[in-house]
Each structure stands twice: as structure tokens, then as C-alpha cells.
């Protein structure tokens, strides 16, 4: 196996790794960790694997990574991902990617925490979290709007990078935090377009709260065989 992923299906951070692995068509060993209710990620056994006590954990031989940014970078390089995921010779683009990877951590600290609270009642400072989440959505909306003026669909250009993967889950999951608190996507058209763009990538997979776009699937309807509508009185 290429690597081992200690994973929790409901985690947006774990989903980044599953999603990128699927896009890169990489197989890996997946080990389910009972984050909730068992808090298995903080068990003695798991802390021995990764003292950080967080999920996901990516393990390859002696290498253990606990930061998703590091995992995405390692995956892009190790599996020879197409150059646009981490532009090898474009230092300015790399700097932008690292910048947005930092922003992804802000998303986890606000929307990610707010979502955990909404699901499992974990204690949080809800006002602070919601304000932080709204500020983060506005920031990314403003940036994506400017990108669209330049004809770009993604955070740093016309093709997705590992920064898009890093920021995607908690932006897409923000409605899970709660209704009518400014965290649904209605007011953010650029975010909605960006979500569509990411969902349209080959290898996209869903997670709870992030659905595939059924309307784009080809159902092989034979339009030629459909009966024409009849006009006249209803039967």
C-alpha cells in the first residue's frame, strides 16, 4: 500500500486526504478511528502513533504526518500529481498556495469547530466561532470574485491546487454549523461557483454534507425515443 490513513468519515480534514487520493487515483490503507463518541484518537494506542492526538494521520513507513497541508504536499510530490496541483517551477504560485493553506487552518478553527459543536455539542465560544466563520467566508468570497474577473475558477489560477483541496471542505460544510447565522451559501455566489468547479473534477467523491452533483450525471436518456407532449384536453 502507498500509505496508511487513520481516518474518520465525518471529518472535513480527513476528507481532504480521501478526496485528493481519489483524484490522484491512489489506493491506500484506511483505518477507521472512532473520533466520536469514543475519542479513540486520544487513546494511548493512537497517541503512540501520533502524539498530536488529531485526525487524520498519514503514515508511510517511519514518516508520520498530522498536518493536512503537509499530507497534501507530500501526496502531490510523491504520486507525481499533475503540475498544477503544486507548480514545481513557479515560486510565486507556491507562496500563494502556502498562504491559502494557512487560511485553511483558520477555517478548521472556526467553521470546523462550529460544526463539531452543532453535531456533537462540543463546548465552544459560539459567538466568536460564528463571527470568525463569517469573516472567513467573506474573505474567500471576495477573493474568488476577483479571481473570476480574471477568468480564474480556483484560488490561485485557472487550475486547482492543493490549496483548493485544503480550503474546500470547511467552506462547503459551513451550512452544517447552523441556519440563519450567515454561514449558508446563499449570499456567496463566487463560493458556490467554486464548489461547483471542485465537484466537477474527475475523481471527486462526496462526504456527509457535501454531495455529488446528481444533475450533471449522464442518465443515458434517449431523447429521440420520448413521446411528444400531447396538446388538448387532459384525460
Amino acid at each position: 500500500m502507498s500509505f496508511t490513513l487513520y481516518d474518520y468519515a465525518l471529518s472535513g480534514n480527513c476528507y481532504k486526504i480521501r478526496l485528493f487520493a481519489n483524484i490522484l487515483n491512489v489506493e491506500y490503507e484506511r483505518i477507521a478511528v472512532e473520533f466520536y463518541p469514543g475519542a479513540e484518537h486520544r487513546s494511548e494506542k493512537m497517541l503512540q502513533i501520533s502524539p498530536a492526538g488529531t485526525l487524520p494521520i498519514l503514515k508511510k513507513d517511519d514518516m508520520v504526518l498530522s498536518e493536512t497541508s503537509a499530507m497534501l504536499f507530500w501526496m502531490a510530490k510523491n504520486f507525481n500529481a499533475a503540475d498544477h496541483w503544486w507548480p514545481e517551477n513557479d515560486v510565486a504560485a507556491q507562496a500563494q498556495i502556502i498562504q491559502w493553506m494557512g487560511f485553511a487552518s483558520d477555517l478548521t478553527a472556526t467553521i470546523g469547530q462550529g460544526r463539531l459543536h452543532a453535531l456533537f455539542q462540543t463546548p465552544i465560544d459560539k459567538d466568536k466561532i460564528v463571527k470568525g466563520g463569517r469573516a472567513a467566508l467573506r474573505k474567500i468570497e471576495a477573493h474568488l470574485t476577483e479571481q473570476s474577473f480574471d477568468g480564474f475558477s480556483f484560488l490561485t489560477g485557472d487550475k486547482p491546487t492543493i490549496a483548493d483541496i485544503a480550503c474546500f471542505p470547511y467552506v462547503a460544510l459551513s451550512p452544517d454549523v447552523g441556519a440563519n447565522i450567515g454561514l449558508d451559501h446563499d449570499d456567496y455566489p463566487a463560493i458556490r461557483n467554486w464548489i461547483y468547479a471542485l465537484k466537477s473534477l474527475n475523481g471527486f467523491i462526496p462526504m456527509p454534507g457535501i454531495y455529488a452533483m446528481h444533475e450533471l450525471k449522464d442518465h443515458e436518456i434517449d431523447y429521440g425515443a420520448q413521446k411528444p407532449f400531447k396538446t388538448g384536453a387532459a384525460q
Binding site: V33, P37, G38, P208
Partner: peptide, 22 residues
Amino acid sequence: STMAEMIEFQQLIFLQDRSILE
């Protein structure tokens, strides 16, 4: 299946329902 796998499977299913329900 491990306990973690069984619990996760059911949580996965239910969380998919949750956003529809809300």
C-alpha cells in the same frame, strides 16, 4: 468489523441525512 468501523458507518449514513433534514 471493528467497533470504530461499525459506529462510523452508521454515523456516516446519519450525517448524510442530517443536512437534508435541516
